[in-house]
Design a protein around this nucleic acid. Sequence first.
RNA 1: GCACCCAUAGCUCAGUUGGAUAGAGCGUUUGUUUGCGGAACAAAAGGUCAUGCGUUCGAAUCGCAUUGGGUGCACCA
Length: 611
Amino acid sequence: MEITNILKQSILAALKDMNISATESEVLIEYPADPTHGDFASNVAMTLFGRLKRESGAGFQFTTPREFALTVTDNLNNQKIREVSTIAVAGPGFINFTISDAFLLSKMGLIIQNRGNVVEQFGNGKKIVAEYSSPNIAKPFTVGHLRSTIIGDSLANIFESCGYTVFRDNHLGDWGTQFGKQIYAIKTWGDEAQIEAAENPVKELVKLYVKFHEEAEKDPSIEDQGRAWFKKLEKGDAEARRLWEKCINWSWKEFEKIYTVLNVSFTENNGRGYGESFFEDKMGAVIAELKDKGILQESKGAQLVFFPEDKYPPLMILKNDGSTLYSTRDLATDKFRLEKYGSDIVIFNEVGSEQSLYFQQLFEIENMLGWYKDGQRVHVGHGLIRFADKKMSTRKGNVIWLEDVLSEAYSRVETMSKELETDSIWKIAVGALKWNDLKRKMNLPMVFDWDELTNIKGNSGPYMQYTFVRCLSVLNKAQNEVFQSFSAEEKSLKSELENDNILNTIILHYDTLLNSKSYLNHKLNKDEKDVLRNLNKYSDIVKSSALEFAPHHIANYLYELAQSFNTFYANHKIITEDSKATDLRLLLVVAVAYTIQHGLGLLGIRTVEKM
RNA sequence: GCACCCAUAGCUCAGUUGGAUAGAGCGUUUGUUUGCGGAACAAAAGGUCAUGCGUUCGAAUCGCAUUGGGUGCACCA
């Protein structure tokens, strides 16, 4: 049982003993901001005081919340909670708990034994469809898609780590009238062989697309040509189909490069995700169902859904020429998911927050149709990206290609650190990008500032990577200088793992120590205790990140952990002649390293061993 | 016009769901290495939590109003 839960239950027991009824939600356990107040605190005495006084009127036995808290504390002390060393009442009636060193140390042992994975498994296999990234075929993969990719992937990782079953889907924009325009443009001004051979075929396609719109301004009849080609595509015309498929393949060539560098992948439809075109033949049934249930209404020749009491503006489902829209395909998508994964799923769409009204409308319709209940559909909206550096700012027709962002990040890391392998540079560069996206609440607009992004100091991706590298460095030294006394068994295991990361070999030496539990008797100093207090929070933090769809809690937490660790690292020698301190402190380093590695993994950031 | 989001240190942001003296990073100033990685650590300066009223033991957090910014609102996605 989690320590917070132990404390909660103890308080509930104490209240029951005092003949006071209270619900679980009325008893909150929090981490005090100021460590001198203890490791945990509860404000039950103050929150309950008002209600109890009202209920029992003049007969209430306590005159102040503090007096009430003192009585609760007496009762708690009688319970002799094993994990708690002291309980004290402070201020207006806070009950402060101080956790015993032995408890913190045993948690540390647990972290090491589980290789950092101590996340509470509350998901129970519940199914989640994670839709993210969703770039458009034949369009640039922009920094906007980058945000969706990074945040969506991280959320998927987090849910998976909590025991959910996650389906990772990529809702590619591979259908729509723009493909008619694209095909017309390729046929009129393009050269397939040249596109094929181009370094980045998508760039050529975008040039042609821009050309189409320039020409269409001069001669509007070109628009009709584009529409005609889309009609052909819809009817399965061989030439239209062939060029459309070419567009997809050219785009995927680019996407695959990007996803590989980002280390992001999808599970659905053989790793490509179900694009909009997949639902081309599934929209009829949806429209029939909407009509059947009387939800669709005609207005100005188009078919739309009007909401009760004008809760939202109406949403169009069919255009006046009978053709479908984004909304039609989304409804078909969610109906398909209902059939494929079951009715008890949760779906989240990681899409820019500018679409939040649209998603409210969509969810409302799905609710009206009886497909999904409240809470099953979630729009995880990220804020827009602004550019601090004017040179990178979007001007008319001047998009920011992710390709350029990635190579810029790469070269900045490359110039900062000499003699690094390409692979490590990518890990650090991508880690910096991801950290920058994940360290703050996602709903607010983000300023894309190169200098902050690639800053290696302070709250940054490289800072985290660096902290991890220092951990490995000290463990490496310990392995060489301290542990000459490996047993034969350990030695053979060690040689098997020779090429593995030091974290996995150092652990061998500690199996005996961990089992003997002698480290539990260590008296912690302030810096050690700070680190262990932070380590103890990890599971709680991951849980609330999942429940709130908020990866930034994990980033903030890891940063605090790293700060407390670096303070400890600067103030105390880890490898000393006193083997007791050495053993304890090395275990602490191992636990920190595992936690950082695991936490960064949830953010989709890979660690490096040197930098 | 209507709806949603936002306003916290010079800048970029946290703030554990209403708690104790509002915290970090960047930038500025100063200090720390005969120590396991100085990409670090310690310290100083910097605040009317946009404004006003309200709710209560207690408000950056909840409610109402005002101001200022962002986004969206019928044939794009």
